[in-house]
């Protein structure tokens, strides 16, 4: 794609950062679903990090099935797939790149390395990850 951008409501950004802080020191992860074809993230679904780890995340396999069934029933797709980096920069790790399996999703990485579980500065960045290639995109926050 020539130009790619994530448009996202401020409240959803805040909710993702809050989730990242709440799950610190482990990685937090989840999805924002939106109507098929809209590219509009609407419904935040925080997921459990089944591996409960500061450097890895994985959705539980049964949660994953329920999530995709529910999205299917509602004619939704995962517009955003997010996770946190508790101690490193907000850029996809090698594992993030090899595991990325939704070529149409915006992969959001939020870093809370500066202040961890408490309020403070954070980095919030969005990427496309297709066939092992990472492209950062602009974010437009809707108030």
């Amino acid at each position: 794609m020539l130009f790619s951008m994530l448009e996202i409501q401020r409240s959803l950004v805040d909710a993702i950062v809050a989730h990242a802080r709440a799950d610190h020191p482990d990685e937090a992860c989840g999805v924002i679903a939106g109507p098929i074809g809209s590219d509009r993230p609407e419904r935040l679904i925080p997921m459990v990090n089944a591996v409960r780890c500061p450097t890895l995340y994985e959705f539980d396999s049964m949660d994953l099935l329920r999530l995709y069934r529910e999205m299917d029933d509602r004619d939704e797709v995962p517009v955003v797939i997010y996770h946190s980096h508790p101690a490193t920069q907000a850029y996809p790790s090698r594992t993030d790149i090899t595991q990325a399996s939704e070529p149409d999703a915006h992969y959001v990485v939020v870093s809370i390395r500066e202040t961890g579980p408490v309020e403070g500065p954070f980095e919030f960045r969005s990427f496309r990850i297709v066939d092992g290639e990472v492209t950062e995109e602009q974010i437009s926050i809707l108030e």
């Binding site: 994985e58 959705f59 790790s93 090698r94 993030d96 595991q99 399996s101």
Partner: peptide, 8 residues
Amino acid sequence: ILPAVAGG
């Protein structure tokens, strides 16, 4: 069939 949603 569902690919895992996972990363690091």
